[in-house]
Nucleic acid binder design. Structure first.
Lengths: 376, 376
DNA sequence: CTTTCCTATTGAATCGTTTGAAAGATGGTG
DNA sequence: CACCATCTTTCAAACGATTCAATAGGAAAG
């Protein structure tokens, strides 16, 4: 019966000791060479070469657990997403990854599916994995203030992106919602619209109120009237496409009440999509009969039919700034008083596409009349 | 000067030894109790209670590195995504997570951003983290056959989802593309369409060819003519929205060549969106003047204007089946001959929405004429 | 009285890696 | 030859948890 040369069973991987045995040097030397530690400059060039060759031949891969245990460092940043199927979150995530890529840190991504139970389970797990920092990517749904406050108890630097806690110790990075609301209404107003319908965000949501504040500020500056019949409010269920459905039904309700508005300002892009659907079903063309403006600029906004004018949140930028702040906090680790609770507000930007047009010349952005003719 | 009671510096976390010291029992006992190991039934109830209380008071969390090192198990499944901003991948990912949730395994998600370099870097990392299984979620872009073949070298059970390797040792889970192509054309044909334009997928792509095979099979069964002027092909760049842009330009080209087709079959939903945009710009209404059928059923298909009829891939199901297979392979670990290279083909399903209609009665699915009137 | 069994707990080795201190070489200097 | 400086390599102790084997007190059985 053939006995394996090594005492190791055939299932375990090649370890540092294997490389040591095979190359004739001690584990220490192997480790020093393979990590290019400072002292490795004293190791003979020939030795280095030999060790590297053997390591490669045996397909040696250092064990992350052994290493992290000894070094007391995980080299990972936890990234908690609230809903990975939300394109808003996805874009932020991409910003995070892009910015984390050139660093020594690896993102450890978990998706809480908008559920508190999962949030807590994954949080516990991230802490067990000794993440050195934590980025929480919150969409606008269901931010449980209590749960998030607990984050500070753990000594892990944390930053919240995409949403804000009114009063908390957590730093956050998000768009300037107040300014966004202001710019949104300004855009419609400057196109000549005066009869404007509004679908505002759910009232309990802090960020949503800020956005609405901006709308109100502009309205009061120019003395725009906002009749109640044309102001409705999302409820904010956590269902995935709820804002589309709500946008549709609320718009239909407003149309049936009084269809005389020439523009509609939606809380976000999905709501806008729902509104456009309702308008079309009602027989109104966008933008010819009614302009629609969204908020966020999710990737599909540009692909929609018609392409959606919207107020853009710089999502990738938000992700990369969050990373910068986390890295900064990690470096400072407790040294100077942390820039805790700091809030970064990024400027939004109006992106005009096809769904909004001047009230005077509605055809400006509309499709050209090749082939078929449309009647005036 | 006050000296800390424990020899530990204030930065390190509470460890098993801390709980042991504080509770007066040995680390062994703590571990046994906290893990509810089989022998823990011999531990006095009072002791258990006490230990649990102390652990809670000190906010003790076991260190994943220490634990995994000793147990030689990571309890993680690597999930490699090729592009997390692709809703196709995202839905599969959700299926994976949902199915993994009740198990003892945690997903370790990484996003390769369609880049080979990142794929390899993350793969190496996953191996260092000793993932016990690996799920590769491939979108239809840029699957590098070589790179994937290397996966089998590592002894980690691997399954590929969303795409297929023509000949390889890797198992895969994907939709039956041939059948999907067949059903797609069947759908349009059964609505009475005979003049159909096609945007097929990139020829080098295996999955794309299978889909096309299905189209051809149906066409030959019913003797449908497919003039060259109405058959175009995507190039398959890895740009994010390339298939939208290509769908648009290719459709425009076909329209300019001969706009007389009554239906268009697109390679996927994004291509269909592009086609719809081009049709509208050209002055043709969907579905009144031309039906459009997509493939995939991404979440936005239902929200599009008009909502998109499409051939649905059961993406969540694909994710959960992939998980099942991985768990199975992990259990069997080398025992019986693995079900290597097995390919699961899931049935696609036609979802009819607004973008396709009978050639005879185009208004069937079109918007109701409230308020404004549209001329016949 | 010895043996066996049960209960309750602990000792000590081990997982794979890193790292500060130390130990061998080698050669030059006083 | 003793001493030092400079290279080159290794020893051995961690990191935090798990687990097999062992201890020890008793009770029950033979």
């Amino acid at each position: 019966m053939a006995i394996p040369k090594e005492g190791k069973n055939s299932f375990s991987r090649t370890t540092l000791a294997d490389v040591a045995r095979e190359s004739g040097f001690s584990p220490s030397t192997i480790s020093i060479v393979l990590n290019e530690a400072p002292i490795s400059k004293y190791v003979a060039a020939k030795t280095k070469e030999h060790i590297r060759a053997v390591a490669k031949r045996l397909d040696y891969r250092p064990d992350a657990f052994g290493r992290s245990l000894r070094k007391r460092r995980s080299h990972t940043i936890g990234v908690m997403i609230f809903d990975i199927s939300d394109p808003f979150c996805t874009l932020i995530l991409q910003g995070i990854e892009k910015h984390l890529h050139p660093t020594e840190f690896l993102p450890f991504i978990v998706d809480a599916h908008n559920q508190r139970e999962q949030f807590e389970r994954y949080l516990a797990m991230l802490l067990e994995y000794r993440v050195e920092g934590l980025i929480v990517v919150a969409n606008w749904l269901f931010i449980d203030i209590e749960t998030l406050s607990e984050l500070e108890r753990h000594r892990v630097p944390t930053v919240l992106v995409g949403s804000e806690m009114r009063s908390g110790p957590l730093g956050s990075v998000l768009v300037n919602n107040e300014q966004g609301g202001y710019l949104a209404l300004q855009h419609l107003y400057s196109l000549g619209h005066r009869k404007i319908a509004f679908i505002r965000g759910p009232r309990p949501l802090w960020d949503s109120s800020r956005r609405w504040d901006g709308v109100l500020r502009f309205a009061s500056e120019v003395g725009l009237k906002m009749p109640k019949k044309w102001v409705v409010e999302l409820t904010g269920s956590s269902e995935s496409n709820s804002s589309f459905d709500e946008g549709r039904t609320l718009t239909r309700a407003m149309l049936e009440r009084d269809p005389d508005f020439t523009a509609l300002l939606a809380f976000d892009d999905l709501t806008a999509f729902g509104a456009i659907r309702a308008l079309r079903t009602f027989g109104r063309r966008v933008p010819d009969d009614c302009s629609v403006l969204g908020f966020d600029d999710v990737p599909y906004a540009a692909l929609y039919n018609p392409s959606l004018s919207t107020v853009r949140q710089p999502m990738e930028k938000m992700g990369s700034i969050a990373v910068e702040r986390i890295l900064h906090e990690i470096q400072q680790a407790g040294e100077i008083a942390r820039s805790k609770g700091r809030v970064d507000l990024l400027p939004p930007e109006v992106v005009q596409r096809e769904s909004t047009a001047s009230v005077g010349q509605p055809g400006k952005n509309s499709p050209k009349n090749h082939g078929k003719k449309r009647l005036p």
